[in-house]
Design a protein around this nucleic acid. Structure first.
Ligand SMILES: [Mn+2]
Ligand SMILES: [Mn+2]
Ligand SMILES: [Zn+2]
Ligand SMILES: [Zn+2]
Lengths: 148, 148
DNA sequence: GATGTAAATGATACCACGTCTCAATATGAC
DNA sequence: GTCATATTGAGACGTGGTATCATTTACATC
C-alpha cells in the first residue's frame, strides 16, 4: 500500500526507514488532498498510538525538505496544510470566496523550469502552482465582484 | 508613498481606511520581498507604537482575503512569510536546504489561465508559482546530491 | 544471528504565534 | 456636528510546534 519509491527516496537520501516515518508517509499517501497537521496527528495516533508528536512534526519537515510533500497556506487557517507532490509538482485553483480548491494536472512548466535552472544555477526538484479567483458557483451565487 | 490603488481596493470592498491598516500596508509595500509576521510587527511598532498586535494580524488576514498579499511557507513548518502580489501574481524559487528565495518575473502563464477559466468556469485573478530545489551555494557547499 | 554505534525516537516542559474578549475609539455616512 | 457601527488596543489565553534528553531503533559489519 505504501508507495515504495518514496521510502526509497528516504533511504537513498541516507535516512533510516523507521516506523514513525513509514506510518506518517502512509497516512499522507492514503488520504486524498490536503491535510492539516492536526489531521495527520490524529490519523497517525489511530494507527499507532506509540508514535510521538515530535516525530510526526520531524517527519513532516523531512518530507518537505525532500520535496515529497509541501506545506501550503489554505484560507482561514493559521496553520499550513500538507499536500503530496506526486512527481514533484502540484497545481490547484483556490476560490477566494468559498475556499474550494480545484485540482488540475497539466501545467506545461517544464521548459520554464529548465530556463530557470540555467539562469540561476539551481537544481529544481518540484513546484507548486496556485491560481486564485472566483469559482462558478460563487459567481452565480450573486456575489458582487467588488466585494472581493 | 502608499500605492493608492491598494487602499482603494480596501475602501471599495467596504472596509474603513484606518490608521492601523494604512501603516501595515505601507510597511509591506516599502519592504522588498518576503516578511515574517515578526518583521512586520517590528516595523509597524517602529512607525507607530500605539498600533496593537491584534490589529496587525487582523490586517494581514484582511489583505490576504483581498489577495493583496499571500502567505507562503518558505521554511519547513514554521511560520509563513507574507509577500505582496503585484498585479495579482508572484513567482519565486525556494531552496529547500537554506530557505533562500530567488524571485523571478516571467512565468508565461497567461494562456494556461485562459484555458483553465474555460475548462472549469472560474474567473481567475492571480496566481502564485513556487519552484523548489537546491540553490547554487548549497550544492557547492558539499551537500551531496542524493542527500536531498 | 550477534554486536556496535549513530540516528531517531517519545515524553514532557517549554515557547511563541496568533486569537479572543471587551470596553474604548475612530471612521465615514448623513 | 451627530450617530451607528466597524475597528481598535490591551492583555489573557490556547494551541501548534520546538528543545531537551534519556532510551530505543535501524542497519552496517562481522
Ligand atoms: Mn491542491
Ligand atoms: Mn517570493
Ligand atoms: Zn467559490
Ligand atoms: Zn540553498
Amino acid at each position: 500500500m505504501n508507495n515504495p519509491s518514496r521510502l526509497d527516496r528516504l533511504r537513498d537520501a541516507g535516512y533510516k526507514l523507521t516506523n514513525a516515518r513509514t506510518v506518517v508517509l502512509n497516512v499522507i499517501e492514503t488520504h486524498e488532498g490536503h491535510m492539516t497537521s492536526a489531521e495527520i496527528l490524529d490519523a497517525v495516533a489511530s494507527r499507532d498510538s506509540s508514535i510521538g508528536r515530535a516525530s510526526v512534526f520531524r517527519t513532516l519537515d523531512l518530507l518537505t525538505r525532500l520535496a515529497i510533500i509541501r506545506p501550503t497556506y489554505t484560507a482561514g487557517s493559521a496553520t499550513p496544510t500538507y499536500v503530496l507532490m506526486p512527481d514533484g509538482h502540484h497545481h490547484h485553483i483556490v476560490c477566494v470566496q468559498c475556499h474550494q480548491t480545484i485540482e488540475f494536472e497539466d501545467c506545461g512548466l517544464g521548459s520554464l523550469a529548465e530556463r530557470l535552472e540555467g539562469e540561476f544555477g539551481v537544481k529544481l526538484t518540484g513546484h507548486l502552482l496556485e491560481f486564485y479567483g472566483i469559482c462558478g458557483a460563487c459567481s452565480e451565487a450573486g456575489v458582487v465582484d467588488d466585494e472581493v
